[in-house]
């Protein structure tokens, strides 16, 4: 069973449909810690502000503990999307500094394209260059592909080996995807990136 974590801040419907299209079956949308503990794979979507998303997780009794038990102790495959990926960091620095999940060392800070023509949020299709990651290898043969981004902040990992793919926006080259053991996260929206996105979701489903 694959569980999509519904904590009030994700585009759940789109993620659900895309996972089904990519070949997932037995998908459940839930925030029930007891059900999450029984899941084989976990997907954490996220849209909006860092503080609100993290607050949304903490507001559900037992959710954080259930996620940590599954992902950190049991090693269940985990996919974070957009803010769901950024939450993996130690902290998010938006209006204030917010503590994240801390599963992958690093922090989330504002994009700095340093060019007025490059607007914030970065909104639209940009190239993602894979960097030694089994999912991108399987999905895209490690080629660079265009995928859909909407974000104003990016994950700055402490260790370069956690960068699964990179993207460049003006002066800023940032992590388009992060990985660590059973944990995978993407800054872009695979569920909104047509074939390239569906292929990546399929690879994630099949390679764990």
């Amino acid at each position: 069973m694959l569980a999509i974590i519904d904590y009030g801040f994700g585009n759940i419907r789109s993620v659900h449909k895309a996972l089904l299209e990519a070949g997932a079956n037995d998908v459940i949308i839930t925030h029930d810690p007891q059900i999450i503990k029984k899941a084989d794979k976990l997907v954490l979507p996220g849209v909006g502000a860092y503080a609100q998303c993290m607050g949304g997780i903490l507001a559900i009794d037992g959710l954080l503990e259930a996620l940590e038990e599954k992902v950190l102790k049991a090693g269940a495959p985990f996919l974070g999307i957009c803010v769901g990926m950024q939450l993996l960091a130690d902290v998010g620095v938006e209006f204030e500094t917010i503590k994240g999940l801390g599963w992958i060392s690093g922090k989330v800070t504002k994009l700095y394209p340093r060019n007025h023509d490059l607007k914030i949020p970065q909104m639209g299709w940009n190239e993602v260059k894979p960097n030694d990651c089994k999912y991108f290898e399987s999905a895209w043969d490690n080629e660079t592909k265009d995928v859909y981004f909407v974000h104003s902040y990016a994950f700055r990992t402490q260790n370069a080996e956690n960068i699964a793919a990179s993207c460049t926006y003006g002066a800023d080259t940032f992590a388009a995807a992060v990985q660590k053991d059973n944990i995978f996260g993407v800054q872009f929206h695979p569920e909104k990136s047509q074939k390239a996105g569906l292929k990546l979701l399929k690879a994630w489903l099949e390679n764990d």
């Binding site: 490059l118 299709w125 940009n126 190239e127 265009d146 981004f149 993207c167």
Partner: peptide
């Protein structure tokens, strides 16, 4: 690498 102009 660059952000692409969108056609909507």
């Amino acid at each position: 690498m660059t952000l692409k102009t969108r056609i909507i």
